[in-house]
C-alpha cells in the first residue's frame, strides 16, 4: 500500500533524512518510532505532499511522488503534529470545509460528517467554536477531518500528545478500529503506545530507518538479554568483580554510596532459573541482597539499543 524508497531531504545545512526506506501492507498499522528530531515529521510531510523530497520516491495506493501528488493526497488522511485548526469556525463548519476540499460529494457530505462526528465522539461540541474547546476535543476533531473522506491511508503524527490518560485510551481504541479498514501509520515516540496498537514497527534514527519488523520480532532480537536492576550491600570492588565474573552477563553500570550499597544495572540471560541462581550466589557471598528487579520494557530496550548503536 505504501512504499517509501530512499528519501533524502536537506534543510540548508541540516540533513534531515538520508535514505529512508520502509513499506506498509494493506490494512496494517505501522508504528513509526523515533526520538525527537529523528525525521519522523519530515517523512510524514513528504508522504502527504506538504514537502517535496530532494531524492527518492514514495508510492501510496498506486500513485507516486513526485508526479502524482494530487492523487496521493486524495488517498491520504493526515493528522499533523500539534493539531492546529481554524479556531474561528465551529467544529462542524470546519469539518464541512475540509470535507469539501477533500472532494466528498455534496449529497454525501452530510452523512459523512454525521458518521465521523459520531465515531470521534464530538457530537456534543459540534456547534461550538473550536477556539473554546479543550485539547482533547481538538485532537478528536483533527482525527475526524483526517478520516472524513474515508481515505485508504491514515497518517497520524503523535495523536495522543497532551491528552489525559482516559482520552489516550479512547484515541488508541479508535486507532485500532481504523486499522480494520484503513492502512495506518502512527508516528510516536511513546513506546508503550506503539507496542500496544501497532502490527509492525519501523524505527527511525538520525534520518534513516534502522529497523523494521513486527513488535514481537523486534523484541526477540534482544532475547537472551533481560535488563535487571540489582541492589546489594557489600564491598564495592568485590561486588563489581563478582558481577563481572558471571557468565553470559553484561554489567552496564554500577554505583556505590557511602553506606556500601551498590546499585547495578545488568543484562542477564532470559532463562527462567538464572535469577534464582543469581540470588543464591549473592546470598552465599554473605552480602545483603536488597532488591532484584527487571527494569524497563523490552521494546524500550530494543529502541535504546538501536538508536545507540547508530550513534557510535
Amino acid at each position: 500500500m505504501i512504499d517509501v524508497k530512499d528519501l533524502h531531504k536537506r534543510f540548508g545545512e541540516v540533513e534531515a533524512l538520508h535514505g529512508v526506506n520502509f513499506c506498509v501492507q494493506r490494512h496494517e498499522i505501522l508504528g513509526f518510532l523515533g526520538p525527537n528530531a529523528a525525521g519522523k515529521t519530515t517523512t510524514m510531510r513528504i508522504l502527504t505532499g506538504f514537502l517535496s523530497p530532494d531524492e527518492g520516491s514514495v508510492s501510496v495506493a498506486g500513485y507516486h511522488i513526485p508526479g502524482q501528488s494530487m492523487d496521493v493526497r486524495r488517498s491520504i488522511g493526515y493528522l499533523p503534529e500539534n493539531v492546529t485548526l481554524y479556531t474561528e469556525m465551529t467544529a462542524r463548519a470546519f469539518l464541512e470545509y475540509m470535507a469539501a476540499l477533500k472532494e466528498v460529494p455534496k449529497e454525501r457530505r452530510h452523512a459523512a460528517l454525521d458518521s465521523v462526528i459520531e465515531r470521534c465522539e464530538i457530537g456534543s461540541v459540534q456547534h461550538r467554536l473550536i477556539k473554546g474547546l479543550s485539547k482533547g476535543y481538538r485532537q478528536r476533531i483533527g482525527l475526524a477531518q483526517a478520516i472524513v473522506h474515508d481515505p485508504k491511508v491514515v497518517i497520524l503524527d503523535e495523536p495522543t500528545v497532551g491528552l489525559d490518560p482516559k482520552q489516550i485510551h479512547e484515541v488508541r481504541k479508535l486507532i485500532k478500529e481504523l486499522g480494520r479498514d484503513h492502512t495506518v501509520i502512527l508516528c510516536s515516540h511513546i513506546l508503550s503506545e506503539v507496542g500496544a496498537t501497532c502490527d509492525r514497527i519501523a524505527i527511525i534514527h538520525q534520518g534513516t530507518v534502522v529497523a523494521q519488523d513486527t513488535t514481537q520480532g523486534l523484541i526477540s532480537r534482544m532475547e537472551g538479554a533481560l535488563p535487571v536492576k540489582l541492589e546489594v550491600r557489600g564491598p564495592e570492588d568485590d561486588v563489581r568483580a563478582f558481577l563481572n565474573a558471571l557468565q553470559n552477563t553484561e554489567l552496564v553500570t554500577l554505583t556505590a554510596d557511602d553506606q556500601g550499597i551498590n546499585v547495578a544495572e545488568l543484562r542477564i540471560p532470559a532463562e527462567p532459573l538464572f535469577r534464582e541462581r543469581l540470588v543464591q550466589a549473592i546470598v552465599e557471598q554473605g552480602w545483603g541482597l536488597r532488591s532484584l528487579l527487571p527494569s524497563g520494557t523490552s521494546l524500550e530496550d530494543v529502541f535504546l539499543e538501536l538508536t545507540r548503536e547508530e550513534r557510535q
Partner: peptide, 14 residues
C-alpha cells in the same frame, strides 16, 4: 504561522 497550512496543503487542492 499557525500551522493550518499543513491541513490546507495536504488536502487535494492545487
Amino acid at each position: 504561522k499557525s500551522g493550518t497550512a499543513e491541513l490546507l496543503l495536504t488536502a487535494p487542492v492545487s
